Simulated scan of single mutants.
Amino acid sequence: MSDARRGTTRRTARRTLVASTALLTVLGSGVPAVAATAPALVQAPLVHHGGGVLRSTSGNWAGYAATGGMFTSVSASWVQPSVSCAGTNTWSSFWVGLDGDGSNTVEQIGTEADCSGGSPVYSSWYEMYPQYPSNFGNTVRPGDHFTASVTTNGSGSFTLTLSDTTQGWSRTVNKSLRSAALASAEVIAEAPSSSSGVLPLSDFGSVSFTSATVNGRSLGSSNASSITMASGGVTKATTSGLSGGTAFSVTWKHS
């Protein structure tokens, strides 16, 4: 990301969710599961700080995003956080992906930690917009160690892999998307959205990402910017600095 781009805005795609019959059986009515529309865009101004670190805010993302080049791979590991649930429904996602920051294509894979009727619900999914997101049927539990990656040959072929090394399962999806912009790479904690806007963020405490790489190199070498999730003057989640160029944490602050 070039330091000369002062005054630009961050545009982050968000998963727009609608209820699916399968997940409603588990969660009850009104709980989003899969997307049925194009990702909407959230715009927020970039904020520059000293020390050569570029920071920004987003209404629905926290983590790191690299832009300003062609991106063909991204990977990271994390421990599935446990969510604290009260009486309201809340949502959160943790993922790696290509595109979505300033582009209208999305290639992402990750996990979910939601609250429905006061109870936690954990799941996993992938998304290749304009195709609908798809949920995996494998069991996801808090404390599970996940490793995820999205790679492409640069000519429209993608491989998305998510592995639960705690429970010993792995899912690999091979997809094609010739219109993919390959304009960004991200490691993100997200507040998903419904058709009416960003949904309340689940209280996931803190999630730690490790071994984060972009284009086969450390995330820190990609000139990625740090993103704080904030909206309407309320900070929803904060992002730590990078440790060793490959590790950071995102901490929940507000729904």
Rank of each mutant, 00 (worst) to 15 (best):
V150N: 10
V150Q: 06
T151P: 00
T152F: 09
T152G: 09
N153Y: 03
N153L: 02
N153H: 03
G154W: 01
G154A: 11
G154C: 07
G156F: 08
G156W: 05
S157V: 11
F158C: 13
F158Q: 05
F158S: 13
F158Y: 15
F158E: 11
F158W: 11
F158H: 05
T159N: 12
T159V: 15
L160W: 00
T161L: 13
T161F: 03
T161G: 02
T161A: 10
L162W: 00
L162G: 03
L162C: 02
S163M: 06
D164P: 00
D164W: 00
D164Y: 05
T165P: 06
T165V: 14
T165K: 14
T165H: 09
T165M: 12
T165E: 14
T165F: 11
Q167P: 02
G168I: 07
G168M: 13
W169P: 14
W169N: 08
S170H: 02
R171D: 15
R171V: 15
R171C: 06
T172V: 09
T172Q: 13
T172R: 10
V173M: 12
V173C: 09
N174Q: 13
K175V: 15
S176L: 11
L177V: 09
S179D: 01
S179Q: 05
A180I: 03
A180W: 01
A181D: 15
A181T: 15
A181C: 09
L182K: 08
S184N: 08
A185Q: 03
E186V: 06
E186N: 12
I188F: 04
I188K: 02
A189P: 04
A189D: 01
A189R: 01
A189W: 00
A189C: 07
E190P: 04
E190T: 00
A191I: 02
P192N: 03
S193V: 04
S193K: 05
S193A: 15
S194M: 08
S194Y: 10
S194Q: 07
S195N: 08
S195A: 13
S195Y: 01
S196H: 03
S196A: 13
S196D: 11
L199W: 04
L199V: 04
L199G: 07
P200I: 10
P200K: 08
S202M: 11
S202R: 10
D203N: 15
D203L: 09
F204Q: 01
F204C: 08
F204W: 02
S206I: 03
S206D: 04
V207N: 09
V207Q: 05
V207T: 08
V207I: 14
V207D: 09
S208M: 05
F209G: 04
T210V: 15
S211L: 05
S211Q: 13
A212E: 06
T213C: 01
T213N: 08
